[in-house]
Write a protein that binds this DNA or RNA. Structure first.
Lengths: 349, 349
DNA sequence: TATGGTTACTGAAACGTTTAAGTGATGAAG
DNA sequence: CTTCATCACTTAAACGTTTCAGTAACCATA
């Protein structure tokens, strides 16, 4: 099937190619007579013409493409989107982009190539980056004349648009909720907190809450590792080996929360009767879990939507840097139990 | 930052643009001296040149882009990838594509435009379609001269490459396993079985197993609805309203299985002591669930990988139609309990 | 010394658009 | 009856590549 080009349409309609182009792009600046417009439209219809966006991009310097870079959560693991968090986010991004006439160019992190190159290669009109990356790579992006939005990426002095939660506040909310329920020995289970990122912020929030309650930070209750179900299952065992000192745990990601619940369950520990758990993210998982997981909720879809919106704004001539902090809130479900002060005190010695 | 083009490189290296092109594409058919090659490479380096894939595509009729269409699972729901199944699949597709030098053009279903148009618009080199679609839309794709792979799409007479599981066998395996464990009154919970698709096939498998065991099909035990956690939770209530006749349930998707478990749990029904449950898909969910879900496993990543491979083959000159049926297997976990024949018989009357 | 074959390039067309600039026809103003 | 706008288009260049068809220089052969 021979491709039909704008010239074929022009011939069919008895006009020049540029006339067809003007009609199709309905540039108000040009005046095309209604009759011609109709003739062109009929020809388009008849020939079943579809413009070649590739050629259009080349000429107009606009691709209607948004590049999305999503991290590989595990270094050794090939596949990255399996985490439902990314699914929900990507979903929202795709939907919003499509409503605005954009398509998504999806890419995992390139090993050999920088994101800058991907962007320049494909001439995307905007880039959305999700998660943490080597800051060197991010700096490179700055040379680009294309709007960049970072989601959940902590950088010292962001030159790009950013979208995030108040992760620190979230960490505090979660921990405070446990404290309010009588818990004082609270485990903290997380990914890597040594690097700037959401995990570090949530850890700071955990510390904030302890400090406000006058509870000293106990390093024995900290379980930094990696954000994986399996890891949290292991933590359950370690907690038991350590003598089940903690009465509660704040898992800095839902996937860790459910992993912990699962691991504890295997060991015969009851949730929340023996140990209370709070998560973070409010993925679907949190509801699915038995018992359902009390967690810190964030509106993932809103984040995706906002990211696309910022890019649209920038393209539309509003390049002012936006730093968007999305609201978070405590979602109370069934994984936390109030414990008695007395019991707690007696356990505490 | 002015874009640097192939001409700039040519000037810098003191050669013609075509020479640069030949060097960069290392066409063995042409002979470029090692010295010139080196000069060009140095110029590329110096100017930090990145080829414009857009222009390349226009000229070469190759975009190195694979279009991926993923369904909106819920009609009224805007977001579609949240289902981890799609996450895992997309992940594998992206990874494999990238290893082959391809990027992904991601799109949800267009309402106004057909997939054909998307494909023609963007000139993708191949298309991967996931899930079921109106067959009219699929037929349109046939006019395209681009390889198309359908994943989990049942069509009467497939003209395209297809990848699927033996869903019917899977349904039979799941049901037979329950029967072997002494169950005779087995609920079937699923999405829409009236249209050709995986749900219908799994239902057929369910029927096959019953027939082989000499158990008559009982319509009261069938709960067709939609593939959603909430729906399965509702089914739990309905089962109870009906008097908890079933001793087991085959949920034709893991998300339904965990929803059912959750719903039953809420009602105080114990799994697997009171009711046994088998799922289908073996998502991460199945392990996360408490109790973990016995299910029919499929290798989602392999499906994604195979899809890309077929497209690579087709591009590489092997367009022979491939119909790929991926292996499935029973994954035994903790959600099924063996029940006593006697008890079962006494319950049965 | 003419002929032919390599070798190592270059020139220019082509891919399918957009868009600035140009043009001929018509009508109004002076 | 010129002149000047305005209208409704058309022309052609440009976007950044690829690739076919040269071609100039060199060497070998007869």
């Amino acid at each position: 099937m021979k491709r039909v080009s704008i010239k074929d349409v022009a011939k069919e309609a008895g006009v020049s190619a540029s006339t067809v182009s003007y009609v199709l792009n309905q540039k108000a600046t040009e005046t095309i007579s209604p009759e011609t417009t109709q003739r062109v439209m009929q020809a388009v219809e008849r020939l079943n013409y579809v413009p070649n966006l590739n050629a259009r991009s080349l000429s107009s310097h606009k691709t209607n493409l948004i590049g999305v870079v999503i991290p590989q959560t595990e270094p050794g693991k090939a596949f990255m989107f399996a985490n439902p968090f990314y699914g929900e986010l990507l979903s929202a991004i795709e939907y919003t982009a499509r409503k605005n006439g954009y398509h998504l160019l999806l890419s995992g992190p390139q090993s050999n190539q920088s994101y800058t190159n991907i962007a320049r290669n494909r001439n995307v009109d905007g880039i959305i980056i999700v998660g943490s990356y080597p800051s060197k790579q991010l700096e490179e992006l700055h040379q680009l004349s294309v709007p960049v939005v970072l989601i959940d990426t902590y950088v010292k002095d962001p030159v790009f648009h950013t979208i995030g939660n108040d992760d620190r506040l979230g960490g505090e909310l979660a921990t405070t909720y446990l404290i309010e329920n009588g818990h004082r020995r609270i485990a903290f289970i997380s990914g890597d907190v040594s690097e700037q990122g959401v995990m570090q912020k949530r850890f700071q929030g955990y510390q904030d809450a302890l400090k406000k309650a006058g509870i000293p930070l106990n390093n024995d209750y900290l379980y930094p590792g990696n954000v994986a179900f399996d890891y949290a299952e292991e933590v359950a065992k370690e907690m038991q080996r350590n003598g089940n000192r903690e009465t509660a745990a704040f898992a800095a990601a839902d996937i860790l929360g459910v992993g912990l619940i699962k691991g504890l369950h295997r060991l015969g520990v009851r949730i929340p009767e023996d140990i209370s758990v709070v998560g973070f993210d409010d993925l679907d998982l949190a509801q699915i879990s038995v018992p359902s997981l009390t967690t810190i909720g964030q509106d993932i879809s809103e984040k995706g939507k906002a990211a696309v919106q910022i890019i649209m704004d920038a393209i539309g001539g509003h390049p002012e840097k936006q730093e968007n902090i999305m609201p978070i809130h405590l979602v109370i479900r069934d994984s936390v139990r109030r414990i008695d002060e007395q019991i707690k005190e007696s356990q505490n010695d």
